[in-house]
Design a protein around this nucleic acid. Structure first.
Length: 191
DNA sequence: TGCCTGATTGCCT
DNA sequence: GGCAATCAGGCAA
C-alpha cells in the first residue's frame, strides 16, 4: 500500500470521498491507539453546495475548510456533538469530506470506555460517535493527516464496485444530491 | 444584542 | 416515528 500524498486530497472531492472508503483512520492518545476502517463518507462542495459550512465564504469557524488539503476540519454542533472532516481541493476552495462511520479495528476496549457502550456496531456508526470513540476533540482542528502524529490515514481504498451512493443525511439544503458514499452491505454504517 | 438553526444522538412512546 | 438536550455561528435589527 502506497503512503498517501498531498495529491490524494487534490483529486476531485467526490473522488476523495469514494477513495477514503476502505482506508484505516488511526488516532493516538495517552489512553492508547484506536483505529477503524472508513465505511461511510459525505462530500461537501464549498461555494457550490448550500449544505456546506463554507457555502457563504470563509469565517473564523470555516477557516480550516479553506486551508491546506489533507488537514482535519473539526467542528462543534448541536451544542454537544463534534464531527471530523478531511479538507480537500486547493486552498481557498472550501471543500471537505465528512467521515460518517468506521468499522472499529483496534483499541476497541478504549472506544467502548469512551462511548460508554459495548455494541461494536454502534461504536462508530455516526459522525459524532466516531469522534467520541477515537478521542478526537476541537483541538485537532487543523491537524495534518500526512505529517501529524495525532491523526493518521493508512491502507488501500476499497474496490469501487463495492461503493454505494445515496443522498446525504441530516441536511435540508441540497438534500437530493447523491453525495453520500458507503461500502455496500457494511453493518457499521450510520442509521 | 437577540433569535434561530443546525453535516446528531439517544431516549421515549 | 417523535422529540429533547444544549450552545456556538451567522444574520437581522
Amino acid at each position: 500500500m502506497a503512503p498517501l500524498t498531498r495529491a490524494f486530497f487534490l483529486q476531485p472531492t467526490i473522488e476523495v470521498a469514494r477513495q477514503l472508503l476502505g482506508l484505516t483512520l488511526i488516532t493516538k492518545s495517552p489512553a492508547g491507539e484506536t483505529s477503524g476502517v472508513i465505511v461511510e463518507t459525505e462530500a461537501y462542495l464549498g461555494s457550490s453546495d448550500p449544505a456546506a459550512h463554507s457555502y457563504r465564504g470563509e469565517t473564523p469557524r470555516t477557516k480550516t475548510m479553506f486551508g491546506e488539503p489533507g488537514r482535519a476540519y473539526v467542528y462543534f454542533t448541536y451544542g454537544m456533538h463534534t464531527c471530523l472532516n478531511v479538507v480537500t481541493a486547493p486552498s481557498g476552495t472550501g471543500d471537505a469530506v465528512l467521515i460518517r462511520a468506521l468499522e472499529p479495528t483496534t483499541g476497541i476496549d478504549i472506544m467502548q470506555r469512551r462511548r460508554q457502550r459495548d455494541d461494536i456496531h454502534r461504536l462508530c456508526s455516526g459522525p459524532a460517535k466516531l469522534v467520541q470513540a477515537l478521542g478526537v476533540t476541537l483541538t485537532d482542528n487543523g491537524q495534518d493527516f500526512l505529517s501529524g502524529s495525532r491523526l493518521r490515514l493508512v491502507g488501500d481504498s476499497v474496490e469501487q464496485d463495492r461503493v454505494a451512493v445515496s443522498p446525504r443525511i441530516g441536511i435540508k439544503k441540497a438534500a437530493d444530491l447523491p453525495l453520500r458514499f458507503f461500502i455496500k452491505g457494511s453493518k457499521f454504517v450510520s442509521r
